[in-house]
Design a protein around this nucleic acid. Structure first.
Lengths: 348, 348
DNA sequence: CTGAAAGCGCTTACAG
DNA sequence: CTGAAAGCGCTTACAG
């Protein structure tokens, strides 16, 4: 690996001049700069990041913290690829690289964040899967490392965040159900402590109240955000004495198990039970009858996250207005057949 | 951020001793070590990675190169989460962190690799999505950075790699089709230069020959590995004069569009056209009629990739036999309904 | 416009 | 068992 010393020796100038030429500093002779750039290219020189980081205290990299692990398979993962694409497109404008940091399910997320911060391999972080009480946020706030959260949290309200519009999705869905004649509406939540669950539930309750529908705790079902969870939920739902005629899912993948369980009893989604899923993901688009759900641009979301983060970092904030630090990300309903019929037959 | 200097000053000993204590070096007084560990914990000290890297020439991190971008959404992405989980579980045994390095679709993959290598932020790399001719492999071989490829390539045969058993999948599928009475069998390939395509096609051809079936170029269909691609392929297939009765897909997501296009003509998968997909992914499991496909443990694949990489790295190879540098990863067929009927009706 | 030098935070021979 | 010092590869005031 060729170092700045090698390059300087090869050109017979000092490493200081080489460095200045390479980093576009003023006060470098044009011809000298040309020669340096040329030689760097020839010898394949690229500055060692460790040396640079140590000196500057900056890494030119941004970390994106995600949760990996078996649970996630087929779940939130394809969500991230789109977001990553958007993040990169914004970060690359500033020559920042994106490092995706997967926190294994074996590891405590707070410890993982601590380790990643201590390693000092990124200048800023994007965290995801925020919990209602999220120790990572406390830690990051204390550590002074710039960060933005994908997802809201009750913890530390002074940081930038962007969250999908769970409130709006629940509101629009319930309104739609009610408009189609439903009065007994269930909600399926994730069996975890992610903050989005409480927002979703609150909006559900508020919407019911608006329509003068009494809230029934038995209509709040909880399971994993996947096929199995959906199956379990359908099972539970079918065993209720007074069955709901509609259900709102916090995650579209639940629809799979739900469709399947209903089919086992010869029940048809849309006719016998109205269903609205969450995100109109690639997988959601595969359902038949098609699932009513909500779409968003993952790429734009990634761009917004990057912009939000950069606008808090002194070195970059000049490029950003800094006005939109936190925001609710809108989602647009996509009509499907899963809640098509206005007055569904009762489940029999 | 507390440095080793701070810690040493706080304990009133030299930084050398602190470093030795922290790094489990011999010849440190037991009590001294205790005190250092205690103080490090109290002050939240973790060694700065840049300082350590600069001195040691090692980063204690492994990079996993994947391709991000819009194309990938809902495609190969959920494949990676499982692999990442396995990688981490093996790497964490050696206190190595995993950095996922997403190469944006905007960027030339070779340039990206060069940049990541030059940055010197990882001690080894896992690359994926290998092309038949893959310049990244040449570059990595030259750069002396240890790496392992997920996928075979014609380029540089002396590196370790692990590849899914595309050959076996195609062979088993064709044998199965033939056993069920099919003679006119199509194959759907990806419209890219990934090496897996040529392996898949070769195995398809070889299998046909084994059964004395003549190869028809018109039965080799190409499209993107997604819903749309599958739709296009079905469309093309329906327009053939002498339609095939069976089709083998290189990617299971193609099945979605294929199912959809067939349904438009009132045709039923399994009855009117036998279909075998590729991986029995979470998404593949959602098809109805269920898709015959092949399963594998992504986690175990990740573990094997990590082991393969580490066994080439001097610092870690003592833990590995080094016998299984390269391997074909077996996949097991999962019976579905998509190729159930022995003699399908002809497409009408 | 350029060079010499300091110093970022570590680890590791080398003395003692 | 411990300390003092060198040096990894950079960038950046400071002189000239």
């Amino acid at each position: 690996m060729v170092s700045i010393k090698d390059l300087a020796k090869h050109l017979d100038i000092s490493i200081g001049t080489v460095s200045r030429a390479l980093n576009d500093k003023p006060d470098v002779n044009k011809q000298t700069r040309e020669k340096v750039l040329q030689a760097a290219d020839n010898l394949g020189y690229v500055a060692n990041q460790s040396g640079r980081s140590l000196r500057q205290g900056t890494t030119n990299a941004i970390g994106f913290l995600i949760e990996s692990g078996a649970d996630t398979e087929g779940n939130s993962d394809n969500f991230f690829m789109g977001v990553i694409d958007g993040l990169q497109s914004e970060l690359s404008k500033h020559k920042l690289d994106l490092l995706v940091l997967p926190c294994s399910t074996d590891e405590n997320p707070e410890n993982y964040v601590k380790r990643m911060v201590a390693r000092q391999l990124v200048d800023g972080m994007i965290i995801s899967a925020t919990h209602t009480i999220d120790k990572r946020i406390d830690f990051l706030s204390k550590s002074k490392l710039p960060f933005v959260a994908l997802g809201q949290s009750e913890t530390g309200k002074n940081h930038p965040w962007i969250d999908l519009d769970f409130e709006g999705v629940a509101r629009v869905s319930i309104d739609r159900f009610v408009k189609n004649g439903h009065r007994r509406i269930a909600i399926a939540l994730s069996a975890n402590e992610l903050n989005l669950g409480s927002i979703f539930l609150k909006s559900y309750k508020d919407s019911l109240k608006r329509h003068n529908i009494e809230f029934s705790p038995e209509l709040v079902l909880q399971a994993n955000s996947n096929d199995k969870g959906g199956y379990a939920i359908a099972d539970e739902l079918l065993n209720l004495n007074d069955r709901p005629t509609a259900i709102l899912l916090v995650h579209e993948l639940m629809a799979h198990g739900l469709y399947r369980r209903l089919a086992e009893d010869g029940l048809v989604v849309g006719r016998d039970l109205a269903v609205i899923g969450f995100r109109n993901s690639a997988q959601a688009r595969m359902f038949s009858p098609s699932l009513t759900s909500f779409k968003l641009s993952l790429r734009d979301l990634g761009i917004a996250l990057a912009a939000s983060l950069l606008s808090t970092m002194p070195a970059y904030q000049k490029h950003y207005s800094g006005k939109m630090l936190s925001q609710i990300w809108p989602m647009e309903i996509v009509d499907g057949e899963s809640d098509a019929e206005k007055i569904p037959k009762n489940l029999t």
